[in-house]
Design a protein around this nucleic acid. Structure first.
Lengths: 208, 208
DNA sequence: GTCTATATTAAGATAGAC
DNA sequence: GTCTATCTTAATATAGAC
């Protein structure tokens, strides 16, 4: 790390540790020592640990959400009817673009999302839905339009199953890629993983 | 709760809290006050929090694992060739039987499993694989035999995707069933959830 | 086996000098 | 903005009386 300002150094260290170990198993002391900044600076710059967590997520959402909004808009604006495969493709590019934004960005973002979902007692879910709820609704509508044979609640459940698949895979991606390497002598990176996930998910969502 | 001994009272309170909030967000104080026993009794009966966590999981694994071994053995002993659907069916009964063993047992067990996978720094994964690794291998072999068209590593990945789907769904099941109730006026219990999960997973695992 | 009291460690947060 | 020092709280764990 070079001449980054303190705030950025904290965010960089925090996102990595949060993704790897979860929010409550990551202390401010661990973050600040990794970031090589003073312990007190977290509270100076962010106010509290809660607000740091939200800031870490916000940095990704501010990139991801507009990008997803854009791909969904393009899909809707085209005159042709679209199928489910096209809807899911709207996610791919915004997700992979996060790797350009930050090293291992895609993986980190998905891990954070999953940890937020599983770990939080509410404040994170509240933060995400109040700040970025619109896209979730837009995406949901697109999936419904592409799957007229599925009921509203069936789609609700299958989207959550999908989220679960992705998020768990990312959350345990380090363990999984380690095992794959030792058992199959296979080097797997995040793009491989996504490529393997897509057929699994696509088949699941449009299952009879 | 009635005339249960202290050890059991602790296990009962702990499993519920661990499933709901995760291991590190559940303090011994919370457990002992919920169990209405003295704080010091956890260390007297179990030695440490780590060992309590393992004891909570062991109580389920000791029921689930032999039961699964038995259903797999029946499948293997039959002379006919079996398909993938039959292999997955081997899980259903041992899983649902846990509801007879403990109230909400299926859900709690799957949540614990998922939390162990995601949260642990190693000791839980070590504990599970060294004590109960055999069944995991047996199950894996059965899936391979039923899916000769899939490579060894493809199966590895898809089984983990499956685990992720199930585990995440269970870990967030309270949030999900709450939403389903308020949005669709739908009462969903654990068996409904599993019924909805099966087609999703089956389609995913045997995807082209 | 159970309970009180306490040791020990680590966490989030802040006051105040620079 | 940054750093040292410290406050406060809460966690795991244990010693020792009963």
């Amino acid at each position: 790390m070079q001449k980054l300002d303190t705030k950025t150094k904290i965010l960089n260290a925090a996102e990595q540790l949060f993704a790897e170990r979860g929010f409550s198993d990551t202390s401010l002391r661990l973050i600040t020592s990794q970031a090589e900044v003073n312990l007190a600076s977290v509270n100076y710059h962010f106010g509290s640990k809660k607000e740091l967590i939200q800031a870490v997520l916000a940095r990704y959402l501010e990139v991801f959400v507009p990008h997803l909004q854009q791909t969904l808009k393009m899909l809707n604006d085209s005159d042709e009817r679209f199928d489910q495969h096209q809807v899911f493709s709207c996610l791919i590019d915004p997700l992979l673009q996060l790797n350009a934004f930050r090293h291992r960005g895609t993986s980190i973002f998905l891990q954070l999302l999953g940890r937020g979902y599983i770990e939080s007692q509410g404040h994170l879910r509240w933060f995400i839905t109040t700040h970025y709820g619109e896209v979730m609704i837009a995406f949901n509508s697109a999936v419904r339009e592409a799957n007229p044979h599925l009921s509203k609640d069936e789609i609700f459940w299958r989207l959550h199953f999908t989220l679960g698949t992705v998020v768990f895979t990312m959350a345990s991606s380090k363990a999984l890629t380690d095992i794959a390497k030792s058992d199959f002598n296979q080097e797997v990176d995040i793009e491989d993983l996504i490529r393997r996930l897509i057929p699994f998910i696509a088949a699941g969502v449009s299952a009879p």
